[in-house]
Amino acid sequence: MTAAESIHQRSPAVLPGVDVLGYAGGRLSEVLWVAYRSLRKLSRNPFLLFFTLMMPIIWLGMFSQTFGTVFERAASSSGQAPLGYDYIAVLLPGIAVMSAIQSAAQSGFSMVSDIETGFMDKFLVAPISRSSVLVGKTLADGIRMAAQTGIVLAIAFLFTLLFGWRIPFASGLAGDAMIVLLTASFGVAFAGLSNSVALFTKNTESTMAVSFTLTFPLLFLSTAMLPAALLPSWLQTFSKFNPVSYVASAARSLILTGFNWTEIGQAFLAVAIIGVLLYSLAVLAFRRQGR
């Protein structure tokens, strides 16, 4: 042990940082540094940054054109009083969820690329927790997802003011903040899948294949694009088991009618369940590295 002690004395700078911050503080600083690095990378790629942030707007425009008339015909043929809002108000929360899923599906790519370039070894030889790497990376993705949702909501609001789009924004700014929180936390939770596949396969193509194969069914077999009432009955049943539906419905109510705490509670529960499942898998995959 004498040698070990003398080594610690010779590199005194290594330990105090941890002691001063305490264990939790040490972990937090690891997570934040990992996240900071991911965001820095993003900022060095302005094209990527621009397109990730603008993607939801493009989708919003696109889907409102394709599904808009279908929705309005269906809504008017139901014989009820005319709706006080456009289809785009129904679609907006769905698009927010969709972009979060999309970003989540790509989350594992940076993991694979770090493994391929050997940068991952820098994390792995450092005295930091494995989960700090995982959490730091997905935290950065979460921030990106929050920015995506925030921007698409802001632009939709602007269009409502300027061009007379009929979007109620029933729960105001607080409701928008809740939508951002909901979609970003859902995206972060779902990113556990892409990262698990990335860590198990260490291969971009597999990560892409698995993520995209799951992304679109999850999205379209849910209430994200159309409210449950307009879906065929088998799909209504299926969508009840799809966590995406809970997040989309809660977000939709926030836009159309206001805070519905039951729905919001269910949505966060769904997020928590898939988060726990997928991150357990991802941590397992992380620990398996180097076996």
Partner: peptide, 12 residues
């Protein structure tokens, strides 16, 4: 980044 991963104080 590497320095911070080793929990060194900022000025160090």
């Amino acid at each position: 980044l590497v320095g911070h991963l080793y929990h060194l104080p900022g000025n160090v």
